[in-house]
Design a protein around this nucleic acid. Structure first.
Length: 562
DNA sequence: TGTGAACGCGCG
DNA sequence: AAAGCGCGCGTTCACA
């Protein structure tokens, strides 16, 4: 049922079989990684769940030893969920004093460095003690789940979160196919020939000179927002910021070269040659993903800006010869999630078999797709002004259940309460400073300033909780989608096949995945991805009739996907 | 010389 | 004045 794995040395693990209740079936066995590899291959047909402290810490090492597992339970990630979830608030984990699992150790330490959690547990460092520390935590987690009001949901969430951790490590291991030669050519074409770091390539320097000339300031550093703002104001432009959107509609000869300078300067500093050498090697981009890195349950990434990969350079993501990239993104994911969360049949119907925003237009709610989109985003983000604010009443009239859900979440946040996603991830409580500001507004001596500060801060938190429910539930859908894709991809090839021969996930961006696959399997991969979206919808929302539509493309390079 | 805030911009 | 959510990262700039 379960196999509890603890690291007891650089190349050894202790493994203990557990029954469904978490009771040990024997004593821990200490195995070298070579032995463990054989053990895993022999055990996998029985479908065990491998329980360990921290996937980000142990699994990269296993992958380097060609060890892959189907399922795991990540104690670190699951602890965070159970500790905060309203569904397990009455469990020992929910109520207990902070322990070693409340430290966010692995977020700050690269893989394989620093002590394992059990070493901080003050239980001794023998193999048995290491296993005992993890087992105690696992038992607490099992009890928290079984004692929850919604054990099915929280159990699915823990499984999905853990699957995500496996996928993240596997994606880093496999890497995103990257053609440095194409990247280099693109940089050279856009910026000019490569020059030493700290200096500007020819084309960029030319643009900087034009900006200086048009603003009559020969010493201006266009990278300094302070200097730039003063120079723009001296030139007679009524601006208070140098952001591109604030400049784009102004009529002045400096604007065109300045906006181009900003665009290219960003390319150079964020994804130029320095980035290429730091983050790509041997034809792969290997970012480090951080599952659970965002409070809502979205992933974050560290180094290389994996989740900000600009469209500008996606042409460098190219399938290997004889392979294809299957790119899929969930169309209008968050509004569909909102429709299902709120059981709003009208909104679900608007998205059935079609672009959801187009469906809103077809229902006569608003006139254009752009209006439908800006109104929906405004409803989910809490916009009150501008076009979005003006359109909101029409949306509320057409989709009262959906809009009521967002409003209810916002009001809860304004009162300082937490909100919970579909599967049971709860928002963090506001800080002590937040409560202090609220309390101050109710003091007898409160000033108008105290009151408006408190109101504004309450609304800020309301916008956060309003969005938390939708963004967090969408993240859960995406994790289930990806876990299903991963599981089904493995039916396409023998279990022993590695990343060099079998289709595998190589990229994930909130509501979008890329699978790298041998050309001949691309059609079947695409079907798997589409079917997995429907499965994820059923896992979260049962029979509620909401479509999760995808845009899919089988391409040679990522830029061709959109 | 190091540190952290502010700014700006990339992604969803 | 405030102003729609969530992130990471590079640069500048003020300050210890």
């Amino acid at each position: 049922m379960y196999q509890l794995v603890s690291e007891v040395g650089p190349d050894t693990v202790a493994v203990t079989g557990l029954d469904a209740a978490g009771s040990p079936l024997g004593l821990p066995r200490t195995l070298t990684l070579r032995e463990f590899r054989i053990f895993v291959v022999d055990s996998e047909p029985a479908g065990p769940r491998w329980v360990w402290e921290d996937t980000a810490r142990i699994y990269p090492k296993l992958l380097r030893h060609e060890i892959r597992v189907q399922r795991c339970h990540d104690l670190r990630l699951c602890h965070v969920i159970l500790r905060n979830s309203a569904l397990t608030a009455h469990s020992d984990i929910g109520r207990g004093a902070p322990g070693p699992f409340d430290e966010v150790l692995s977020l700050d330490r690269p893989e394989g460095t620093g002590p394992a959690l059990f070493e901080l547990m003050d239980v001794g460092t023998s193999d048995a003690a290491a296993s005992t520390g993890l087992l105690d935590e696992f038992l607490l987690q099992l009890r928290a789940v079984s004692g929850s009001e919604q054990p099915g949901r929280i159990r699915l969430l823990l499984a999905a979160e853990s699957a995500g951790a496996l996928i993240a490590a596997e994606m880093t291991h496999a890497g995103l196919p990257w053609r440095s030669d194409i990247h280099h050519d693109l940089l050279t074409r856009e910026l000019g020939a490569r020059v030493a770091p700290g200096t500007r390539p020819e084309r960029l320097e030319g643009l900087a000179s034009r900006v200086r000339l048009e603003l009559g300031d020969a010493l201006l550093n266009p990278d300094s927002s302070t200097e730039l703002l003063r120079a723009l104001q001296r030139a007679g432009l009524a601006v208070t910021s140098t952001r591109a959107w604030a400049l784009k509609d102004l009529s002045h000869p400096v604007i065109e070269p300045l906006l181009l300078y900003k665009k290219l300067s960003r390319l150079l500093t964020a994804n130029g040659w320095t980035w290429m050498e730091a983050w790509t090697s041997a034809g792969r981009f290997r970012p480090e993903y951080l599952p659970g890195g965002v409070v809502t349950g979205r992933w974050a990434a560290r180094g290389g800006g994996a989740l900000q990969l600009p469209k500008q350079i996606r042409g460098a993501v190219v399938a290997d010869p004889g392979w294809k990239l299957v790119v899929a993104d969930a169309a209008q994911l968050e509004p569909r999630i909102l429709a299902a969360l709120s059981a709003d049949l009208s909104m679900a119907a608007a998205g059935r078999g079609t672009d959801l925003y187009a469906g809103i237009v077809a229902s006569g709610v608003v006139e254009t797709r752009d209006h439908a989109k800006v109104a929906m985003l405004g409803a989910m983000y809490g916009a009150t002004t501008g076009e979005s604010g003006r359109l909101l009443p029409r949306l509320a009239a057409a989709y009262p259940r959906a809009i009521a859900l967002t409003e209810t979440a916002a009001r809860a946040g304004e009162r300082g309460e937490s909100v919970t996603t579909r599967l049971g991830r709860s928002s963090p409580p506001p800080s002590a400073a937040w409560h202090a500001t609220q309390a101050k507004a109710y003091d007898s001596g409160a000033t108008a300033g105290d009151e408006s500060r408190a109101r504004s801060q309450a609304r800020d938190w309301g916008r956060f909780t309003r969005n938390f429910v939708v963004q967090g539930s969408a993240a859960e859908w995406a994790l289930c989608w990806m876990a299903e894709i991963r599981r089904e991809l493995q039916t396409l090839h023998a279990v022993r096949d590695g990343f060099a021969t079998a289709p595998h996930l190589v990229f994930f961006l909130h509501d979008e995945v890329i699978v790298h696959t041998p050309e001949g399997l691309a059609d079947r991969v695409e079907s798997i991805i589409v079917e997995a979206a429907a499965t994820a919808g059923r896992l979260l929302f049962g029979d509620f009739p909401v479509d999760f539509m995808l845009t899919t493309a089988t391409v040679d390079n990522y830029a061709a996907a959109k």
